[in-house]
Amino acid sequence: MGIALSVLVVLLAPYAPSRADMLPSPTGPVLLTVSGAVQNTNAPGEARFDRAMLDALGLRELVSSTPHTQGRPVWRGVGLGALLHRVGARGERAVGFALDGYSVGIPMDVVERYDPIIALEREGKRLRVRDGGPGWVIFPWDEHPEITDQAFSGMSIWQLERLRIE
């Protein structure tokens, strides 16, 4: 009986959500909601993030010019890939929705290859809605000269509030 249970546990282990996968519930204002084909949720069918939770994923800096800005600002935010991994996204693309009603799909392989961030800060200052916040998808344009086309400028969605994994 004991042995059988052990075997069952071993067999099921890869599918069982580990403790680290358990998403805590947001305590502050929700900045970003991930819905659709996600495994780790903290609300019915979706994962909601406040700033503290996003900070907990680890923020990183990215210095890059963008089609929509001047100069080479210092962007700081959470990796889109890291976020999707955190929620256990299982889909082919992430569709971003902005506060102004704009939406765009970002293929998973683009996320994997270019590792964009969802910038939360520009030049050390929190992005307000009027600055393109709360989240602004920034690609490392300067590292990849080949992505200077309109598809990427379209995928660089700002005022991002929601992602749906499809």
Binding site: S65, T66, P67, H68, T69, Q70, L99, D100, R128, V129, R130, D131, G132, S153, W158, Q159
Partner: peptide
């Protein structure tokens, strides 16, 4: 306020965007 913010961001954008 959201509308204001959005319009604000548009104003900033048309001033700033390389495109």
């Amino acid at each position: 306020f959201l509308r204001l913010e959005l319009l604000w961001s548009r104003c900033r954008l048309v001033m700033e965007a390389q495109t």
